[in-house]
Nucleic acid binder design. Structure first.
Lengths: 113, 113
DNA sequence: GTGCTATCTATTGGCAGCCAATATATGCAT
DNA sequence: ATGCATATATTGGCTGCCAATAGATAGCAC
């Protein structure tokens, strides 16, 4: 998987891994990695600014937790975040359909060429 | 479809529409538009530099044609271009699988959650 | 008790790559 | 003669992700 691969789809990934429940940043990275079968390895410089942005937009809320002396910042979806995730999924479907029908027209029966 | 949508997948699109036969730049734009059902509208500032790059890389070859007084630059796939297209299709499959399995894990039966 | 690795958060600089805007010219219809 | 479709090309700019860097806690091996 080439670098820069998630460009334009990062928000959807973050919202999606938070759907089952709250996670902190580090756990989000491992969750994306696990759910993608190891294909997607996000960097901290990628997700922390993105999480901040999503919180600023009202799609996420965060609260600090303490585990012993260690601090964690836990993010969870807001209602707007759940709506945003639904939009991202729709956009993803449209996107893959558009690119896919150009890239592989024969693989889509019923599609006029 | 948001602007900047084809980012990272442009080369594959160009190679794909050239697979059936040679086309000139303007026809490439309309071909992508048609095959995507109108979803993808590439700009000249997007494709001309890309076509040049692909030719420089040896994936395309071009030759000028004259229709009356009008000049057209026709591009066609080289053998390397055909190989490149196959790679792009593989990469596309891996990409959609990776993002898709994060975005929509339940929609993929057999995928452990 | 010293290193090594994993866990955890955060910021900065850079740049690839696409788009908007712009320029130019032909051909045809009205 | 005006406007729209056809046709090619360049430039500047911005978005957004990544690499690099920084720093702190915790546990394990030795």
């Amino acid at each position: 998987m080439k670098s820069d691969a998630v460009r334009g789809h990062l928000d959807g990934l973050l919202l999606a891994v938070l759907e089952p429940g709250p996670l902190h940043g580090y756990a989000i990275i491992t969750a994306v990695q696990r759910r993608s079968g190891g294909a997607l390895e996000l960097r901290t410089g990628t997700i922390y600014p993105a999480l901040n942005r999503l919180e600023r937009l009202g799609l996420l809320s965060s609260n600090w937790q303490s585990v012993g002396e260690r601090r964690r910042r836990c993010y969870e979806l807001t209602d707007a975040g759940r709506a945003g995730l639904a939009e991202e999924r729709t956009a993803w479907r449209e996107f893959t359909t558009a690119i896919g029908s150009v890239l592989d027209p024969v693989a889509r029966p019923g599609h006029a060429v």
